[in-house]
Computed example of a mutant assay.
Amino acid sequence: MSSNTSRVKTIFRSKTSKALDKVEDPRDTLDDNYDQQVKLLHQVRRAVAEVATAKKRIELQGQEMGSRYQRLGSQAREALAQGREDLARAALERRALLENQVAKLQQQFSSLERQSSQLQERERVLTEQVGAFRIEKETIKATYTASEAQVKANEAVSGLSNTITEVGSSLDRARDRVAQMQARAAATDELLASGALTDLTAAPDADIERQLAAVSAKADVDRQLQALKDANPSAAAPASERGGSAADGWLGIGQGTPQP
């Protein structure tokens, strides 16, 4: 049951992660919006520069016309002083025509001056907005990044806890298997010792030989015990221990033949 639950959690985490990957990253969106605002600000600044250039060009043209206007007036006065009324009239006619041109130029200059002031104000407001948006953007991005890191850390801890739980379950199962195997080994040892199970590695008829050896050993012990009871030292010692010197007497132990 626990393994199935763990498998379901793993599948759920995988599907959730894939779904989150498809969600738009707000940091990228904020950066894109900021870039668009910066582009608009650059466009406004270029417009301010273009209007300022046009206004300066008109201003220079107006200054040139003003100088000509003053010069024509001087020429008209000089012509009258010399008795040349015709030249004075011509200078005044040109001056009147130039005055009309200067009036139109003044209107253009005033219009450009108002437009320049408006653009400069818009540029100032937009600069403040872009600066405020940049600070807000970086704050949101930092908060999102910190939250994302916390989520990843929590997921890592959760995954580690699940792994530790699974490892603990595996260890418990392994301990149970070891205990079962130890109990089975002990049980088979007892069955082999009792003869309930046949040792397939033993020689044929080994069980009969083992039983005869046990009966013979018991009979030998009974004889030695009876000899001790009869207080007969020579009878109490086994045949393999009688005779011979202590140095080579050990050769006859277990042989069943008395030493000379």
Rank of each mutant, 00 (worst) to 15 (best):
Q150H: 07
S110E: 10
A132M: 09
V38R: 08
K218W: 05
A52C: 04
E93C: 01
E138L: 06
G243C: 03
R89M: 10
R210K: 14
R46F: 04
D220Q: 08
Q43E: 11
T145P: 00
D189R: 14
Q37R: 11
N232H: 00
Q70D: 15
A149D: 09
R57W: 01
T16H: 12
S67K: 15
A49T: 12
F12E: 15
K15I: 13
K18E: 07
S3Y: 09
T143G: 04
G62Q: 14
S161P: 00
E121V: 06
R175I: 15
I253L: 15
A96H: 07
Q37F: 06
A206D: 12
L197F: 05
S14Y: 05
L97H: 08
V130M: 03
K141M: 08
V221Y: 07
L160E: 13
K229L: 07
L41C: 01
R77E: 08
L40R: 09
G73K: 06
V102H: 06
V44W: 00
A193W: 03
T127K: 11
S6P: 03
L212E: 11
E128F: 06
S6H: 07
A236E: 05
T127S: 10
S116T: 02
L41W: 00
Q129F: 09
I58E: 14
V51W: 07
E166V: 06
K137A: 13
K152S: 02
L40M: 02
E148R: 13
Q37Y: 02
Q129C: 01
R57D: 15
Q101K: 14
